[in-house]
Design a protein around this nucleic acid. Structure first.
Length: 1128
RNA sequence: GGGCCUGUAGCUCAGGUGGUUAGAGCGCUACACUGAUAAUGUAGAGGUCCGUGGUUCGAGUCCACGCAGGCCCA
């Protein structure tokens, strides 16, 4: 029986399948974890995917990336537990359910109960779990699928509640408001998802105003600011400028009142706000009513000079007067000079940017107090001004004698046309128009015009959306900002820029985490409040909830707890039915919000173990994570929520190393989408190429954090080039190892120091490779690791070692040299198996088994799988850099000789006398001499001659060593370079002899040392040379008769080998050769090299004057030869 | 609109701290090898380093402003 299986063709997908079932049958994954019991842990956190859609090719990328470091660390001796997980809550699930049921959110509670709805969500969310599990297994992602954490699990939710309670107790959970899209017509907030529906943004024509804000304490001086929502002007409480922008003060006239005035605006906006034709007109010449209004810059300054400037409100309304620092100029980074005036009007209640800028500047917004004393905006939820504004507008209409299509009452000032009035009606005037007229009359408007812009609309009502303050529960992340930033700096981000840039900037500009979601399927906020909101309870466990319910039952608010027994469901609607009791015996109701699903996943380090209720030991041993990986789109998602919860509650990072991987695009760089049909089906790809080439391609083609342009041809190339070459190398080994009955036995091997140079070289390279893979993987750089393995396998092992060592495998019987060759190749192959096992787990294990089965049968102890082995660290003592350099020289020199041969059309089969190599140092000579034999046989030459100074024919040239000299001479570098370039042989000899030389730089003397110039050999007079990498080679192309004859002999051998092959002879079959006489040179060649020809072709005899009737005519390029070959 | 990433040969990608002939693989062309053979090797052609300015003796590399593509957030 053969010890090493030989393969004609390799079925890569088949390897994937058979190895997978081997792993399953023998529980290899489980063993790889159990084996390391008691060892140091390496902790990995799984970012939970959602199983409500089928997995795509990008999931192969993400999951491979997660897998490889866990496998690597396992080999290195760590115990790596990997708990799988599922993300189950959230809007996409709800939308899918609604789509399938043909309902909308409004139907929930009407056509369908919340109970039924959530039941449907629960069913839907795990719909594709089987596909996911299938893919996970097929790509070899080792993760515990049998006991995953699931975010809808009551235990999971209970952990979340306990975390929320801890936040609450630290006073980090509060109710506030945030500016969100809101549809007054539908009476509901809109998610960004809803706002991104096609058709939501529509071009509409609105009245826009450039308003004039009078500068306090100055006569006729105004700051002007533009808005497309005039109805927000009564809520103005500050103006924003860009600190670095240029502003001007311009003397001009108001176009509506003709008053002389100065206005302040960004210099860059002058062209848009003043008529060019008025340029040069004199202020004095202006007469009221003139179409062209003169203007004149009277002052220029930077935005930051305006900071703190105060102005008078446009709408001096009692009851909304504000304390300072309202009505001042502040700065905001988003101010530009692309439109408007370069000065932005801010209304805290109606713009998210406005809100943020004002909060940062500590400026209050315009609000009024309701009956409870709460601050409310001046526009109500139906989209109309409160009476306090209505009265003012009504009075102003009377004052300015403004008529409209109807009589306006104090409650009639809707900010948009929510009453669906006919806008074409006679004298139709909406609130914006009325405001414009008032401002025009009061010298508060610089420009009023219709402006067409894109504005969001509610997808249900088709009416315009308002940005409006809505109540929400927040986590006060801003309170911990400094610590969040500080601890982030300890995290190793791949790529670094995502940590410092994208994530770091995000932390720097942190706002409080809005936790609320007004939805149905998700983790309920465990907060109960009494009706006047004077008492708040945050529940931290089921037990606590039951205890509180007990009090409620006592009080008679409830009859029994819905959370008894085994089957507990903490979702809506059950929690909504819970009424608790406050300290005064009043009812408390749950705040109806659900929490952000990102809190679900960010809490997984704790909730996956049901901490703090269970598993404290496991939790502590596995926290924080050593490594996590997800897409870069998770930066503000999972990466943030993990970090935030960890820092705020545990004063720790949640993860130490993180890879944020990029997107998988199609081969043209477009986003993949099922709709466009350019999405790649992972299952189909696996079936065609198998998992290993797919994984390898994804890792080696580009850094994972760059986007990957996924191209199946690339997978095929990896398969052909890397796996194919490796497989060929294995096949070569197996073929001869079987013939020679070779079995690797560590106890009986030839020690490395006894092995030939070539073996010691590849072993040195192998050790270097191990070190490189180790370094790369320790710094989470898989691309570098895979490329290093590929380079070694293809370029070093296959294309150099095997090619040069080939003869050792087929010559003669087993001897020490042969054994060394087998052992060396075997060691290389098994080591590659281990090195590649993290990336190509199936193939590596398959080949490992093919290689080791023989030894196992022979009774040696061999691991069941390469994944259960211990890492073979690099043996530094086997690394011989000198030897590696020597071999590099051999490769370079051979390449140069090939190049020369080609130039002179001399095929390699034609032996040549010698090459000449100029030698600049003894060291180089020694290094080349080491590999001289190898070069000679590789390029078929008889000898190598070295030319040194003594030869007298070596021509050298000198070049400046720029990095060294540049630092020293700087601007004079050009002179120095010119001086050195002029040097002849004498100067070079001079500096070589003395170690330094003095040069003249425009009269200044300067001494150059030897290492500051680079000396190379230029050429050899009269010879055809080639050079590269500082090595020059000359080839002696003289063909002596002797060489010609040998060439003929070699040609004949070649032709006879072909004949043998055509005749179907086996390697060991013997033949006789008869050749017809041709001419003296050829005949002589055959006679002289008869022995050589016979031994090469396994011929028992060679007669030059034989009977060649029925012989074959051989084409010998330059002549023809008739021969007859017969099997003995 | 803001933050971040990417842009180098037909394609996919390398090119520490700036240093003078910008590299590799694939593809292409030619040749060689024929005892790894449905393999393999060698050589050759192929470049506006996205653009424009700047810093510097010297820029693919540093700076500024753009352009194109992408991600996230508004």
């Amino acid at each position: 029986m053969k010890k090493y299986q030989e393969f004609k063709q390799v079925d890569y997908p088949g390897i994937g399948e058979s190895v997978l079932s081997y792993w399953q049958e023998n529980k290899i994954f489980e063993k790889s974890v159990e084996n390391r019991e008691g060892a140091e842990t390496f902790t990995f956190f799984e970012g939970p995917p959602s199983a409500n859609g089928t997995p795509g090719i990008h999931h192969v990328m993400a999951r491979t990336l997660k897998d490889i470091f866990c496998r690597y660390k396992t080999l290195k001796g760590f115990q790596v537990k990997r708990k799988g997980g599922w993300d189950t809550h959230g809007l996409p699930v709800e939308l899918q359910v609604e789509k399938e049921l043909g309902i909308t959110k409004e139907d929930i509670g009407k056509k369908i109960t919340v109970e039924e709805y959530n039941k449907k969500c629960r069913e839907t969310v795990m719909r594709f779990k089987n596909e996911w599990d299938d893919l996970t297994e097929k790509i070899g992602y080792w993760v515990d699928l049998d006991d995953p954490y699931i975010t809808f699990d009551p235990k999971y939710i209970e952990s979340l509640w306990s975390l929320l309670k801890r936040l609450f107790e630290k006073d980090l959970l509060y109710k506030g408001y945030t500016i969100q899209p809101f549809s007054p017509a539908a009476g509901t907030g809109l998610s960004s998802h809803e706002l991104n529906q096609p058709g939501c943004y529509r071009d509409v024509k609105d009245t826009s105003i450039t308003a004039q804000f009078k500068v306090k304490g100055r006569e006729n001086e105004y700051i002007i600011a533009w808005t497309t929502t005039p109805w927000t002007l009564p809520s103005n409480s500050a103006l924003a400028i860009g600190e670095k922008l240029d502003y001007v003060k311009v003397k001009t006239f108001n176009p509506y009142t003709y008053q002389e005035q100065t206005v302040i605006l960004a210099k860059a906006r002058m062209g848009a706000l003043f008529n060019k034709k008025a340029e040069g007109l004199k202020i004095e010449d202006y007469k009221p009513g003139d179409k062209l209004i003169p203007f004149e810059i009277v002052e220029e300054f930077k935005g930051k000079d305006m900071l703190g400037m105060e102005y008078e409100p446009l709408f001096p309304i009692e009851g909304i007067a504000l304390p300072s620092p309202a009505f001042t100029v502040i700065s905001a980074d988003y101010v530009t000079t692309e439109d408007g005036t370069g000065i932005v009007h801010l209304a805290k209640a109606f713009g998210a940017d406005d809100f943020r800028a004002l909060v940062q500047a500590g400026v209050p917004g315009v609000f009024v107090k309701d009956e409870q004393g709460n601050e409310i905006p001046v526009v109500d939820k139906r989209g109309r001004f409160l009476p306090v504004i209505g009265e003012y507008l009504q009075a102003k209409m009377k004052e300015h004698e403004i008529t409209a299509h109807k009589e306006y009452g104090v409650d009639d000032f809707y900010v948009k046309n929510y009453l669906k009035e006919d806008e074409n009606a006679a004298d139709y005037k909406n609130t914006d128009v009325i405001i414009s007229i008032i401002l025009k009359n009061e010298n508060k408007a610089f420009k009023v015009e219709k402006y067409e812009h894109s504005y969001p609309h509610c997808w249900r009502t088709d009416m315009p959306v308002l940005y409006y303050p809505l109540e929400s529960w927040f986590i006060k992340t801003t309170a911990c900002k400094d610590r969040l930033v500080e601890l982030n700096k300890t995290i190793n981000w791949k790529p670094e820029a995502t940590g410092t840039g994208r994530f770091g900037n995000w932390l720097e500009n942190l706002v409080d985490w809005n936790l609320s979601r007004s939805r149905f399927w998700g983790t309920p906020l465990p907060v109960w409040r009494n009706e006047d909101a004077t008492e708040t309870k945050c529940i931290g466990s089921i037990a606590e909830l039951n205890e509180e319910i007990g009090k409620s039952i006592e009080k008679g608010f409830m009859t029994e707890s819905p959370f008894k027994g085994e089957e507990v469901d903490l979702h809506r609607p059950y929690v909504d039915d819970v009424i608790l009791v406050d300290s005064k015996g009043q009812k408390m109701f749950r705040e109806p919000d659900l929490i952000d699903v990102w809190f679900d996943s960010g809490a997984m380090p704790y909730a996956q173990w049901h901490y703090p209720f269970e598993n404290e030991e496991i939790f502590k041993a596995n926290y924080p994570a050593d490594y996590i990986a997800e897409g870069v789109d998770q930066t503000r998602g999972w990466f943030f929520t993990l970090h935030a919860i960890a820092v705020m509650l545990f004063d720790s990072v949640a993860f130490k190393n993180v890879i944020a991987n990029g997107l998988v695009l199609d081969k043209n760089g477009n986003k993949m989408s099922k709709r466009l049909g350019n999405a790649v089906d992972p299952f189909k790809t696996l079936k065609e190429y198998g998992p290993d080439a797919l994984r390898w391609y994804m890792l080696s083609n580009a850094n994972p954090w760059d986007n990957l342009k996924f191209n199946l041809e690339g997978v095929a190339e990896v398969q052909r080039r890397f796996f194919g070459t490796l497989q060929n190398t294995y096949n070569f080994f197996a073929l001869y190892a079987n013939l020679d009955h070779f079995t690797y036995d560590a106890s009986k091997m030839v020690s490395v120091s006894e092995r030939p140079e070539l073996d010691r070289w590849i072993i040195s390279k192998l050790q270097s490779l191990i070190g490189e893979v180790e370094n790369s993987m320790d710094s989470y750089d898989a691309t570098r690791a895979t490329r290093a393995i590929m380079n070694f396998t293809v370029d070093q092992l296959s294309n150099w070692y095997v090619r040069l060592a080939r003869k050792r495998f087929w010559r003669g019987d087993m001897n020490e040299d042969k054994q060394a060759a087998y052992e060396t190749l075997y060691e290389c192959l098994t080591t590659i198996c281990q090195l590649m096992s993290s990336f190509a787990p199936f193939y590596a294990d398959w080949m490992y088994k093919n290689l080791t089965d023989g030894a196992k049968e022979a009774g040696q102890e061999i691991a069941e799988s390469v994944h259960l082995t211990d890492w073979n660290a690099a043996d530094e003592t086997l690394i011989n850099k000198d030897l590696e350099t020597s071999m590099q020289l051999a490769q370079d020199i051979s390449s140069l000789v090939h190049s020369l041969r080609k130039k002179d059309k001399l095929k390699v089969r034609q032996p040549l006398q010698k090459i000449l190599i100029p030698i600049l140092s003894e060291k180089t000579r020694e290094q080349i001499q080491h590999v001289e034999e190898l070069i000679k046989s590789e390029v078929n030459i008889k000898g190598v001659e070295y030319i040194d100074d003594a030869s007298g024919i070596l021509v050298k040239s000198a070049k400046p060593n720029f990095p060294l000299l540049g630092k020293r001479f700087g601007p004079k570098m050009k002179l120095v370079a010119a001086a050195i370039n002029q040097w002849g042989q004498e100067e070079i000899a001079n500096i070589e002899r003395n170690g330094s030389v003095e040069i003249d730089l425009d009269g200044e003397k300067a001494a150059l040392s030897l290492e500051e110039v680079l000396i190379t050999s230029q050429d050899i007079p009269g010879w055809s040379v080639a050079s590269d990498n500082g090595i020059t080679v000359a080839l002696d192309v003289t063909l002596t008769n002797e060489l010609k004859q040998e060439g003929i002999a070699r040609d004949l051998v070649n032709r006879i080998q072909n004949l043998r092959k055509d005749m179907g002879l086996e390697v060991q079959d013997k033949i006789t050769i008869k050749v017809a006489k041709l001419n003296e040179q050829v005949d002589q060649a055959l006679v002289n090299f008869s022995e050589y020809i016979q031994s090469e072709t396994q011929a028992l005899s060679l007669s030059v004057n034989g009977d060649v009737a029925e012989g074959t005519v051989l084409d010998m390029d330059d002549f023809e030869l008739k021969v007859k070959v017969e099997k003995v």
